[in-house]
Design a protein around this nucleic acid. Structure first.
Lengths: 148, 148
DNA sequence: TCCGAACCTTACGTTATCGTGAGAATCATG
DNA sequence: CATGATTCTCACGATAACGTAAGGTTCGGA
């Protein structure tokens, strides 16, 4: 019934980092303080694993600092709070829920803008490299032709 | 006749960095020692500007360290030496030239592989974000429907 | 209950990438 | 050639993102 749990060493191994780094991410507010209501050791589950993996991927692909990453992830957190409030006791009326959703969409638009900007730059770099390659390839073909 | 030249401050301003950074890049071997045969001040031209701009772009887009960048740029340097040797006094025979070209192509293939790998990852991230966005958008549409 | 492995906190060390003076030399201009 | 702006070379400082070592604690299994 209970979701499988594991400790910091397992988490680090799964996502390809170290316990020290994970603690550092927590210190910066990238990961939740993680239950720990009882004794001492941090406990995580697959949800935390997914979050951390996403974190590291976005960081790598967009070249963000950890602090910038926190801002980025505020979007995720907002969506999480949204899901919480969704089932609150005094169910929020529809116009409120619509506002929350619109906020989430706005934030995702910001993210998409950043990603697409990067994509455009990378595609341009790829084009330039391909063009150079074609040019040099044709030079080679010419020489081989002359040799034959 | 002579290509327009400028000093380190101008160069830095043009590419959006600082003189200190430029000197650091030179120290790491990313930029040539720059003439300086005469007195003291470093002198650059538009060619250097292009190189530096390329350098910083590749670094940003691929997230390379400056040392890794030097390896990356070894391709450019190889192609430059190639162009030099091309017009050497004892013109290299065709099979030698072909070998040089094949090396250059191999190096560019490595670069393209890296760029395309990044492109793939970024496209996947974009897909995931877009999907999420569509999902939330449909939720919003439902609510607005109910309100009407 | 006992033990080794894994974890805890605290604190200092490390590397990459520059920033920031300090003091002297160089360059363009009047 | 006088002078203000720019550049030069050390050299030390700063920040991010962890690594590493020390000394104590917790956990899971025999």
């Amino acid at each position: 019934m209970a979701p499988p749990q594991f400790r910091i060493g397992e988490l680090a191994r799964r996502v390809g980092t170290t316990p020290r780094a994970v603690r550092y991410y927590e210190e910066l507010g990238l990961l939740p303080g993680s239950d720990r209501s009882d004794g001492a050791h941090r406990v995580y589950d697959e949800h935390d694993e997914v979050r951390l993996r996403d974190l590291l991927r976005v960081r790598e692909l967009l070249g963000l600092t950890l602090v910038e990453l926190r801002e980025w992830m505020d979007a995720e957190d907002a969506r999480a709070r949204l899901r919480e409030r969704w089932n609150e006791q005094p169910a929020p009326d529809e116009s409120t829920r619509a506002d929350i959703i619109r906020q989430a969409i706005a934030h995702m638009d910001t993210q998409l803008l950043l990603v697409r900007s990067r994509l455009g730059s990378l595609e341009q770099l790829e084009d330039e490299l391909s063009a150079k390659r074609r040019k040099v390839r044709s030079m080679l073909a010419e020489i081989e032709q002359a040799q034959a």
